[in-house]
């Protein structure tokens, strides 16, 4: 019997990333944009994976937004995404390196903010 002190999910979070081969080097972070690969096979996925694909049907989203929409912790969704990138189902657009930001990107941000 459960103590009732704590509400648990029926399926534990770590199961969301189960059965996926997660690459050793995970190059996915909060603001990485994720989208479905044009030729991806989208069936036969576990529920979290297919929920993620449903979410991405309308276009790319950041990993962080995916986590929020799926109601799963970011660290779990990060691995889920990395696994699906490894299997060729998802593609990513990485945030640019920021050691020395690109002036063109800064100009885009400035003109975007001014146009709001």
């Amino acid at each position: 019997m459960t103590s009732g002190r704590q509400r648990r999910r029926v399926v534990p979070d770590y199961m969301a990333a189960a059965r996926l081969t997660v690459p050793e080097n995970v190059h996915v972070e909060r603001t990485t944009l994720v989208y479905i690969a044009p030729d991806a096979a989208t069936n036969g996925l576990d529920p979290p994976g297919s929920h993620l694909l449903t979410l991405l049907r309308d276009g790319p989203l950041s990993v962080y937004e995916c986590a929020a929409h799926l109601g799963l912790p970011y660290c779990v969704v990060r691995l889920l995404v990395a696994g699906l990138v490894g299997s060729g189902t998802l593609l990513t657009r990485d945030p640019p390196a920021t050691d020395l930001p690109d002036i063109e990107i800064l100009e885009l941000v400035l003109s975007g903010l001014r146009a709001l």
Partner: peptide
Amino acid sequence: MASALSESRISTEHIPVKL
């Protein structure tokens, strides 16, 4: 303002940046 923007869709051409 927010309502006009809420329809914004991200495309694969967008560069993600963070502040």
